[in-house]
Design a protein around this nucleic acid. Sequence first.
DNA 1: CTAAATCGTGCAGAAACGCGCATAAACGTG
DNA 2: CACGTTTATGCGCGTTTCTGCACGATTTAG
Lengths: 255, 255
Amino acid sequence: MSMLPGERLDLIASRLQADGKVVAVDLARELDVSEDTIRRDLRDLSARGLCQRVYGGALRPAVSTGTLDERSRQQSEAKSALARAAIDWIAEGSSVFLDAASTNLAIADALPRDFGLTCITNAPQIASALTLRGDCDVVSIGGLVDRTVGAAIGAEAMNAARNFRPDICFLGACGVDPRAGISAVHAEDASFKRAIAGASAMTIVPVTTAKLMTAAPFHVLELADCAAVLVEADAPEAAVEACRAAGAKIRRCGQ
Amino acid sequence: MSMLPGERLDLIASRLQADGKVVAVDLARELDVSEDTIRRDLRDLSARGLCQRVYGGALRPAVSTGTLDERSRQQSEAKSALARAAIDWIAEGSSVFLDAASTNLAIADALPRDFGLTCITNAPQIASALTLRGDCDVVSIGGLVDRTVGAAIGAEAMNAARNFRPDICFLGACGVDPRAGISAVHAEDASFKRAIAGASAMTIVPVTTAKLMTAAPFHVLELADCAAVLVEADAPEAAVEACRAAGAKIRRCGQ
DNA sequence: CTAAATCGTGCAGAAACGCGCATAAACGTG
DNA sequence: CACGTTTATGCGCGTTTCTGCACGATTTAG
């Protein structure tokens, strides 16, 4: 009776799934191979996240179906720096809203691992990225997806958003200005941002330096309504001071 | 007793289906060909997704493992061929539903340009791909996104889906069998598929050869309820006839 | 603390593998 | 039929994978 190596791996994996544990020496006797081979198999399964190695055998991993995500997306350095700073606000087990913004896509990738987060978003691309992570619950808000914004906005999306009370909300801004406050280029998008920010316990606005001191046509929030505006490390001090004077709580990246 | 190459492939495939595994050296002896030939056959079957290659032989492929984008990388050629055939059913200006399936991801890419389509989907990745096209209206159905299925399913998604009456609905199937009909591996996913198929004027099920004549645990539809089942060009005639006898309207790819 | 069990690593032989090449049959075409 | 082309097959050869064994390190149990 010849048993194929791959077949043996499958058998061990299914045995593990069924019984919750396997013992190396038993498997060796039962499958008629040396313990070394079994240990190698277990090491292999462990490397693929299919079992947890213990002395004398292996156990079923705490969270099964670990998906290996080899894809590392290239992203702008500034935005991932903002993202790394932004996640400091996120508490374990909290619910996080990410609206449609490139910085928020970076945040989706930078979220702390295995925090038990519930992530809500109206942007399919962000929902997709979050789902690929595999370590957080993802709730996507549906509706008509506007192609310039890249997210579901409009009445139906606003309606669906009413069901949520996120602990923290990251809003992308098209413009941040001492007088105009937070603004956006799309009317419906601005309304949606305003709605979800109002429903959230805390609103954080990460903004790249290029958008500081600029205003977009549609008003979203006053600067004072944000829990924080996160700016890049190289943001001009004059701009930061002007916003502070207008009531903004500015946090500089990497400090 | 000369055996035709294709005949041998069919025999290996059926042996694989019956026993769950084949050993290269045994097949070589039994069929009186060299191991090289067997290896080439197994490589061929593997490329078509009909077996999983392992050291020393091959195993029956595991059913539906991995996330949506992992699945879409497998047999991408076959899937885009199915997609090219599938879009024949799509009329200009119609509304199209695409559920979570790797073949539907291929369809999203293959949709005719500038047809003024309204595309509805519960899979964020498909919504994302559609939005990036920029030539069709996209409606994403929201809800809790199941990570193994890669789409929003459950009560909330079903509720949102009730608002739509798509002209045409493309359903991914985990199994297509003359007796079991169309089936899926995930209970909620099966319910969602059934609901959206019922709401659609026409339901098309594209299916890769590996899934023909296999059944998954949860029933979705009877074969007769589909406007068409689209199979690959190389689908075995016996399987096609068996499904036809069960009331399926089969359309072969590229014909 | 000690002894036994278990583990990791390096090594060597055997088996399986992929690849290129050559031969032969099957095919299509004029 | 003659010819070039495609396809299928077997064989040689270098490479990779699998496996058991030896040996020293590590962990566990009494």
